[in-house]
Amino acid sequence: MAQSWRSRRTDPDARRAPPLDRAGLERAALRYVERYATTRAKLAAYLKRKLKERGWGGDDAAPVEELVAKLAGLGYVDDAGFAAARATGLTRRGYGLRRVAQSLKAAGIAEEDYAEAEAAARAQAWQAALVFARRRKFGPFASEMPDRTAREKALGAMLRAGHELAIARRILACEPGYVPELDQG
């Protein structure tokens, strides 16, 4: 007699989960928002992906947008709060305003929801550039004054990190050892 625990299932649909209904879709949404800080756009994309994977078992169309609006109304999804947290985290790690704005747009946050976070990132632009320069040992944090090629590479890195050209040039022009913490003018 063959041992059943050794045999493999040949039916690929045997383990497939049943199609989602309204309650299942709501459970999936709640599990997602309890586990991740998210935005309305990310939650909607997640639910659409789940519907594509499992299918829809309801008679009418899947209420994705209605469910996203409901969870946002309950405060489980807060785009402005997500934007503020993401902007604070990126500026603390040394990324510039342009990189922060790109990240917020990629997360699907509307302009009115990230305006306050963008203003806070703009106010911290100088400190964020210093953090980036310290981490990469550029400008005032370098051991010696770099040659032209190294300065151009450093400028490119700062621009890719989202810093403004004027700020990047001022920091890279600093002598090693002179940290312009308060000299922002």
Results as ranks from 00 to 15, higher is better:
residue 66 E to D: 07
residue 82 F to I: 14
residue 153 K to E: 04
residue 108 G to S: 11
residue 150 A to E: 12
residue 19 P to N: 09
residue 92 R to G: 15
residue 99 R to F: 07
residue 64 V to A: 06
residue 143 S to K: 06
residue 158 M to Y: 07
residue 86 R to A: 12
residue 107 A to N: 07
residue 72 A to M: 05
residue 79 D to P: 00
residue 52 K to W: 08
residue 2 A to T: 10
residue 156 G to D: 15
residue 21 D to Q: 06
residue 113 D to T: 05
residue 78 D to G: 15
residue 157 A to P: 08
residue 131 V to L: 01
residue 185 G to A: 06
residue 167 I to C: 02
residue 92 R to K: 15
residue 85 A to T: 14
residue 120 A to S: 01
residue 76 Y to C: 03
residue 104 L to I: 05
residue 162 G to W: 06
residue 61 A to M: 15
residue 52 K to C: 00
residue 92 R to S: 08
residue 4 S to K: 11
residue 5 W to V: 08
residue 170 R to E: 13
residue 2 A to F: 12
residue 54 R to W: 03
residue 42 K to F: 08
residue 101 A to T: 01
residue 70 K to H: 06
residue 99 R to A: 12
residue 16 R to P: 11
residue 115 A to W: 04
residue 53 E to P: 01
residue 58 G to L: 11
residue 66 E to G: 07
residue 118 E to T: 12
residue 169 R to H: 08
residue 145 M to T: 14
residue 138 F to W: 03
residue 91 T to F: 04
residue 40 R to K: 11
residue 80 A to K: 00
residue 142 A to C: 10
residue 31 R to K: 15
residue 17 A to L: 10
residue 43 L to A: 12
residue 124 Q to A: 15
residue 25 L to E: 00
residue 23 A to M: 03
residue 85 A to W: 02
residue 64 V to W: 02
residue 52 K to S: 10
residue 173 A to C: 03
residue 4 S to Q: 11
residue 25 L to K: 02
residue 77 V to K: 07
residue 71 L to R: 07
residue 91 T to R: 14
residue 106 A to R: 15
residue 134 R to I: 06
residue 45 A to Q: 07
residue 28 A to V: 04
residue 24 G to L: 14
residue 75 G to Y: 05
